[in-house]
Design a protein around this nucleic acid. Structure first.
Lengths: 110, 110
DNA sequence: TTGTTTGATTGCAATATTACGATAATTAAT
DNA sequence: ATTAATTATCGTAATATTGCAATCAAACAA
């Protein structure tokens, strides 16, 4: 089907999955790393940085923006993107929580 | 195309994306959480815990196993799964590193 | 106005993912 | 040997994702 049955999972589980999908593609990983590296608005540089066509980058940026992880501001003919640090922190908290499950001292069993 | 151009990204970027995809679906999030909660081998319980058909669960388990995040051991007619804590720790290190980017005190710009 | 630049959108093709019924494979029990 | 229990695999359908050429839209410059 290609369609996840989100209704049988908790909101938290769906949220974790959604955020994880955001950087479940190397292009988006690369975009986010670049924005962090620059640590300010990036206007028009992104397509040249990543080796993908402009419409493809635009699409990845749209996804990241819809999730709120980045924001874009129009500056003349160009659009400047940057990390939304508040949202990033919120996501980090949720995913870190998930990654830190299982504090037991038990070794891997079996 | 539906085919990620992995060759233009670094191994690290591809690795982050691969791990992120592992829990980019709520069913796999749910499976992993369940295995952590039990904190031992789970033999045959998983299909009843998650509301998906047996072949679907089997497929998700296979993906997690291929990544090394879980391991399955045959016990009679059933298979017992558990978290591979070493691999989990390795993944956690990689993803935590990614999530902790951007320590600058600058607020979100723009 | 006309052109230029930049980024978004549209349309499409190819591949990937998700889900499940049917069936196979394995082991244990009778 | 049969049967039951459990999980894996196959086949298939539906939807999602990725990527790009072509095009559109907005803002600026001449």
């Amino acid at each position: 089907m290609g369609l996840a049955k989100t209704e049988i999972f908790t909101d938290k589980q769906n949220e974790i999955a959604l955020f994880a999908k955001a950087f479940g593609h190397p292009a988006r990983v690369s975009i986010l790393q670049y924005l962090f590296k620059i640590d300010s608005c990036v206007c028009g540089d992104i397509v040249n940085e990543i080796g993908l066509a402009q419409p493809t980058i635009s699409q990845h940026l749209k996804e990241l923006k819809q999730l709120g992880l980045i924001q874009g501001n129009v500056e003349g003919t160009s659009v400047c993107y940057c990390i939304n640090k508040e949202k990033w922190a919120a996501m980090k908290a949720i995913l870190t929580d998930f990654l830190n499950q299982g504090h037991s001292i038990k070794p891997t069993c079996c």
